[in-house]
Design a protein around this nucleic acid. Sequence first.
DNA 1: ACCTGAACACCGTTCAAGT
DNA 2: ACCTGAACACCGTTCAAGT
Lengths: 210, 210
Amino acid sequence: MSGTSLREPSTTRHAGLSRVDVVDAALAIVEAHGGDALTMRRLAADLGVTTTTIYWHVGNRDELVLALIARLAERQAGSVVVGDTGAERVESAARNIWSNALAHRNVTALASRVGATTLLELPLEVALLAELEAAGLREDVARDALRSILMVVAGFLVGAWRPVVGESDLWAGVRDERISDATLAAMGRAPDVGLLFDRTIRTVVAGLVP
Amino acid sequence: MSGTSLREPSTTRHAGLSRVDVVDAALAIVEAHGGDALTMRRLAADLGVTTTTIYWHVGNRDELVLALIARLAERQAGSVVVGDTGAERVESAARNIWSNALAHRNVTALASRVGATTLLELPLEVALLAELEAAGLREDVARDALRSILMVVAGFLVGAWRPVVGESDLWAGVRDERISDATLAAMGRAPDVGLLFDRTIRTVVAGLVP
DNA sequence: ACCTGAACACCGTTCAAGT
DNA sequence: ACCTGAACACCGTTCAAGT
């Protein structure tokens, strides 16, 4: 990143920065290197500016994070829902949330961490709710169904990122001797999480819409 | 917290600290105040000791976090599975993971953040896998079923903690005008997440075990 | 073996000051 | 209106030194 923003280190007094520039640069850092990499000093350096300048444009780091999430949300607003039956369209809307989150895992993880998942997914969640109601669910039933589906999607997201026994060196010193190697191996990562997602979401939706 | 560990500020040269003491104190901080509250300086202060002493007992913060998670895991090893049919027992084992995580949400959130969820839940996950196999699933099918169930559980966990539109002030400046208040209200928090969990996990399990 | 003191590089944030 | 420089309180971590 930062290939797009080649500014003079600090010669000019007026950098000509806008709030959008700052938010976009922050978004680029998070997309490329994760939420922890987003420090005010690094962001300032990427923009060829002093740390304090960042504070002038966006209030503080928390606001910056929220702004960056909202920015990505508005970019991914237009995902199309496909399918003929109500259940198919509901599945499609759910899959849109899943695939958009996978395509932007760093931002999604950051949003989850600061409790702004809904902010990121709002347009997609609204679309899903609309499909549920179009499928014939009454308002309160649709709302509960939305919740259930969102939680399943969220679970597969954390599952897709979850390191598994044996795959990381995280387990080096902490292995429990009472549990056999065979059992641990059986718990290894499934070959295709996407397949599991499809099957599970289909089951859940089938239990939810007529 | 720290009510149990009243040590002299720093008079004695030998504090008589063990690694277990340090890990327990760290666990107490996380349970009471969350993962962000666990700083080496605060932990040292709670133990009446210098920051550097912590490093002598546990390698660094990452190792300390892992140790604290493992410590809680061994404490909650013995949850009993109930039910007559295979499906009931699978549901019960899944519910054990859910309720244990809810009872220790701060540690669960920390474990999720560092990618050590399996470390925390290992005994409970193994128990769930055993029930799936006892219900008649072949080894690889049971493993996939385990994955699916774990992801649903994980989803409800992040869902249970997830702030909802309208409930926090997080959405103050970022509301999207294209989305009506009625829609947002319809997406509000369900009255009983536990009920949704029960219904969803039953549906998923029913689709998984015969 | 166990613990302290001082120091380093890194954070987010604020405040007065410059143009 | 926009930006800099210096400073503050806070991190995790290391290293030499004490008993």
